[in-house]
Amino acid sequence: MTEYKLVVVGAGGVGKSALTIQLIQNHFVDEYDPTIEDSYRKQVVIDGETCLLDILDTAGQEEYSAMRDQYMRTGEGFLCVFAINNTKSFEDIHHYREQIKRVKDSEDVPMVLVGNKCDLPSRTVDTKQAQDLARSYGIPFIETSAKTRQGVDDAFYTLVREIRKHKEKMSKDGKKKKKKSKTKCVIM
């Protein structure tokens, strides 16, 4: 069974824990209790493949930012979460993405942009803004509501699919490099 290491990042209060708990335990946590770091595991079937999701729910508070490099190193894919009623959390996505790329030393890291709290009427981040940002990053965008469960499975499952595509691409690139290195030079 394939294991996928997913990391949920975003500013404090955007609903990272609520999304994760909704996926794992099928219930909505409405009281806000700032996370330092929590880890969850769940076995699911995605596109006919049974897999184990190892999900790291991270601290959004700035005082825990020193811990970010460590979990970013171990993560295979990242859910970059903002709240649709919090423009600052949307603007912060850029910083999370840049930090992930720096730590992973790669421009090509599996990510999904997630606009959470889409059940709320007080939207300050337009869907088109988020779609445009995701398009500019070359990553999928999904709106979710941890409260109603809308888009929750889709967000995590899409990230797994992005990781699969990335692994497939990397193995193809690896095979191309191996083929090239088999060419021999004969000096007579």
Rank of each mutant, 00 (worst) to 15 (best):
T2I: 09
T2F: 09
T2K: 15
T2H: 14
T2L: 09
E3H: 15
E3Q: 13
E3F: 08
E3M: 14
E3D: 14
E3A: 15
E3K: 14
E3T: 12
Y4C: 13
K5V: 02
K5I: 02
K5P: 08
K5E: 06
L6H: 02
L6Q: 02
L6T: 08
L6E: 02
L6V: 11
V7C: 10
V7D: 02
V7A: 10
V7R: 15
V8C: 08
V9Q: 04
V9D: 04
V9G: 06
V9H: 05
V9T: 05
V9I: 13
G10C: 06
G10Y: 00
G10N: 02
G10E: 00
A11H: 09
A11P: 10
A11Y: 08
A11I: 15
A11W: 07
A11D: 09
A11G: 09
A11K: 05
A11R: 06
G12L: 07
G12H: 07
G12D: 13
G12Y: 08
G13N: 11
G13W: 08
V14L: 11
G15N: 01
G15W: 00
G15F: 00
G15V: 00
G15D: 00
G15K: 00
K16S: 10
K16L: 00
K16E: 04
K16F: 00
S17A: 01
S17T: 06
A18V: 07
A18S: 10
A18K: 08
L19A: 15
L19D: 11
T20F: 00
I21A: 11
I21L: 09
I21K: 09
Q22G: 09
Q22R: 11
Q22Y: 05
Q22F: 06
L23I: 10
L23G: 15
L23M: 15
L23R: 15
L23D: 07
I24T: 12
I24Y: 04
Q25R: 08
Q25N: 15
Q25V: 05
N26D: 13
H27L: 13
H27P: 03
H27R: 12
H27S: 11
F28Y: 11
F28D: 02
V29I: 12
V29K: 09
D30F: 11
D30I: 09
D30N: 14
E31R: 15
E31N: 15
E31V: 14
Y32S: 04
Y32D: 04
Y32I: 04
Y32N: 05
D33P: 01
D33S: 07
D33M: 04
P34G: 04
P34A: 09
P34V: 05
T35I: 00
T35Q: 01
I36Q: 00
I36A: 01
I36Y: 04
I36G: 01
I36W: 03
I36S: 02
I36V: 05
E37D: 07
E37W: 03
E37H: 03
E37P: 02
E37N: 04
E37L: 06
D38I: 01
D38M: 01
D38L: 00
S39I: 02
S39Y: 10
S39E: 08
Y40G: 01
Y40L: 01
Y40N: 01
R41M: 07
K42N: 10
Q43C: 08
Q43Y: 07
Q43L: 07
V44A: 13
V45M: 12
V45G: 13
I46W: 08
D47Q: 09
D47L: 05
D47I: 03
D47E: 11
G48K: 12
G48P: 08
G48Q: 11
E49A: 10
E49P: 08
T50I: 11
T50Q: 12
C51N: 11
C51K: 10
C51H: 12
C51E: 10
L52A: 14
L52G: 14
L53N: 09
L53Y: 09
L53S: 11
L53V: 15
D54L: 05
D54V: 06
D54G: 09
I55A: 14
I55N: 07
I55G: 04
D57H: 01
D57F: 02
D57R: 01
T58C: 06
T58E: 11
T58A: 06
T58I: 05
A59Y: 02
A59R: 03
A59N: 06
G60C: 03
G60L: 01
G60Y: 02
G60I: 01
G60W: 02
Q61T: 14
Q61V: 10
Q61W: 05
E63W: 04
E63D: 14
E63M: 06
E63C: 08
Y64Q: 06
